[in-house]
Design a protein around this nucleic acid. Structure first.
Length: 173
DNA sequence: GCCAACGTTGGC
DNA sequence: GCCAACGTTGGC
């Protein structure tokens, strides 16, 4: 089982939309490196749903790959933004996967937070200049991200008890 | 809106 | 195959 990270702009299609739809085809990827990662996905793999071009950018939840090696239907649709007239119908150029909603996190695990926990070598998304919309996440990094999400889901279990500083805010100085 | 960091295109 | 020009992505 492998872990991945898939980017989308929530204004276009976000975790809320996937939650509503339960499942969707991850269409529109038109970058060969990203496509090659899509081609290597297998049913059962897990993918982090990353929200880009929003404040704050970060991971919003988790999804599962349920079908792989699908021809992206938008490449043959002349009315689609992703129409590719050069893609031969008998040898489609663009493959993708069907994903299924797993969970929406109570809070985004932000890009800032990811930078705090991972050096650039350990997580592609925090690398400077990274634009790939589909990237692999190695298992140890994935486990750590899931831990961060779990902390966010259950803050009461990890928040240390605060010392009683009194009710007057001026006492805090 | 800016702009760095790409990826793609096409003339040569 | 080179590379300048152009287009896109996405954080800030």
């Amino acid at each position: 089982m492998n872990y991945w990270l898939l980017k989308s702009e929530p204004e276009v299609y976000g975790i809320v939309d996937l939650k509503r739809d339960r499942t969707t085809i991850w269409d529109g990827v038109r970058n060969y490196q990203a496509r090659n990662f899509l081609r290597s996905m297998l049913p059962g793999d897990l993918a982090f749903f990353y929200h880009s071009n929003t404040i704050p950018p970060g991971i919003a939840g988790l999804m599962k790959i349920v079908e792989s090696n699908l021809a992206d239907p938008t490449q043959f649709d002349p009315s689609s933004d992703y129409y590719d007239p050069k893609s031969p119908p008998d040898a489609p150029r663009w493959q993708t996967v069907r994903v299924e909603f797993v969970e929406e996190w109570a809070e985004i695990v932000s890009l800032d937070q990811l930078r705090d926990h991972f050096p650039p070598d350990d997580l592609v998304i925090v690398r400077r200049g990274n634009r790939l919309s589909v990237t692999p996440v190695d298992p140890s990094a994935a486990e750590k991200i899931l831990d961060l999400a779990t902390l966010k889901l259950r803050p009461s279990t990890v928040m240390p008890a605060l010392p009683d500083l009194g009710s007057n805010p001026q006492d805090l100085r």
